[in-house]
Simulated scan of single mutants.
Amino acid sequence: MKLPVMPPVSPMLAKSVPTIPPDASYEPKWDGFRSICFRDGDEVELGSRNERPLTRYFPELVTAIKTELPQRCVIDGEIIIATDHGLDFEALQQRIHPADSRVRMLAQQTPASFVAFDLLALGDEDYTRRPFTERRAALVATLADSGPSVHVTPATTDPTTARRWFEEFEGAGLDGVVAKPLTLTYQPDKRVMFKIKHQRTADCVIAGYRVHKSSAEAIGSLLLGLYTDHGSLASVGVIGAFPMAKRRQLFSEMQSLVTSFDGHPWNWAAHEAGDRTPRKNEISRWNAGKDLSFVPLRPERVVEVRYDHMEGERFRHTAQFNRWRPDRDPRSCTYAQLEKPLSFGLGDIIPGLTKEGES
């Protein structure tokens, strides 16, 4: 492979801001695997945000890229799995699997797409020092005939349209809006773009904790639950961003609530052998050796957390601590309190992104 921009490249990043800034190009924030695609003839490499190659996990995209992208190019984008019900991040995570046979089976069952949003190189030309407006125009022209697996993200310079996208597109599983200054050059690993994400709060029950990796007497994360309509306590996510002094304080505070798994709503002993987490057969696909077992707590303490959006029945990202709610009855912490976004189809964002019959 010989390109004007060679792998690995860390993607350009965005910092969170509370409102949509003026004088920028606005795009939907796709919720998938960030990836920089390098193509030089028959050689294709899909890099990740942390520079780990993703190529072997998406063989169908490698084939599509050889058909739909120029012979020599470097393009920044997002790998997604699009369904008629929105983006499926869980299906995307399942691709990170050591068995090639399983990866290829999933590639047929749940094929991925690549949504392009920046051009780093084309032919022998390095575009990284050009302003974003030039890169965007070249990207649109270059991928004018792409598809059905490679798509160009929508973009607008109208803040009113961006605000409408922010409200509507969440119903299709998108993550917010990204704003790019019009004169911005491509700056790897720098937070020079802006992202505007949904922020909501929910009152959750603390039902367990994991110890911190550096200390057996410090909290690594607190496990959150919400009650379902049937009265069972569902695991919805974790909070874990605490200073070390707070982690030790929390560990001390939680000891009075420590209990056994007997009668606990997340009794791993009642599940299949090896299932030691609130979610059945939970594993860390990026770190197979990571211990995800937890210490059970009596579900008596309520915490208010901030979250952006749900993926199925769980918080898509790690929730953030807001405040304790001693005034709340744990049983009152149900899914009914969660805001539900309007339904919106991916095909209304990018025509042809979902195909009839996909689920």
Score class of each variant (00 low, 15 high):
residue 105 M to L: 07
residue 35 S to E: 08
residue 109 Q to S: 13
residue 209 Y to G: 01
residue 241 A to F: 07
residue 253 E to N: 11
residue 16 S to I: 05
residue 137 A to P: 05
residue 319 A to V: 14
residue 38 F to V: 00
residue 199 Q to Y: 02
residue 133 T to F: 06
residue 330 P to M: 08
residue 160 T to F: 07
residue 260 S to Y: 07
residue 315 F to A: 13
residue 79 I to A: 01
residue 290 K to I: 08
residue 333 C to T: 14
residue 198 H to C: 05
residue 262 D to L: 01
residue 47 G to T: 03
residue 81 I to Y: 09
residue 118 D to S: 07
residue 92 L to P: 00
residue 336 A to S: 15
residue 311 E to W: 01
residue 50 N to F: 11
residue 61 L to I: 09
residue 240 G to L: 03
residue 255 Q to K: 11
residue 69 L to A: 08
residue 141 A to G: 11
residue 80 I to V: 15
residue 212 H to G: 04
residue 213 K to T: 11
residue 24 A to T: 03
residue 358 E to I: 00
residue 165 W to V: 09
residue 130 R to D: 06
residue 137 A to H: 10
residue 331 R to S: 09
residue 183 T to A: 04
residue 199 Q to V: 14
residue 229 D to R: 10
residue 260 S to Q: 06
residue 205 V to I: 13
residue 291 D to K: 08
residue 91 A to Y: 06
residue 42 D to T: 02
residue 140 V to Q: 04
residue 26 Y to M: 03
residue 204 C to S: 06
residue 103 V to R: 15
residue 349 I to K: 02
residue 140 V to L: 04
residue 9 V to P: 02
residue 27 E to S: 03
residue 20 I to C: 06
residue 181 P to K: 00
residue 335 Y to Q: 13
residue 81 I to M: 13
residue 248 R to P: 04
residue 297 L to S: 01
residue 236 V to E: 09
residue 268 W to E: 05
residue 11 P to C: 04
residue 244 M to L: 08
residue 116 A to P: 13
residue 338 L to S: 06
residue 105 M to N: 01
residue 179 A to N: 01
residue 154 P to S: 07
residue 24 A to M: 08
residue 120 L to R: 01
residue 220 G to C: 07
residue 130 R to L: 15
residue 295 V to R: 06
residue 185 T to C: 13
residue 193 M to A: 14
residue 293 S to G: 09
residue 257 L to C: 12
residue 309 H to W: 04
residue 292 L to I: 07
residue 35 S to D: 00
residue 70 P to G: 10
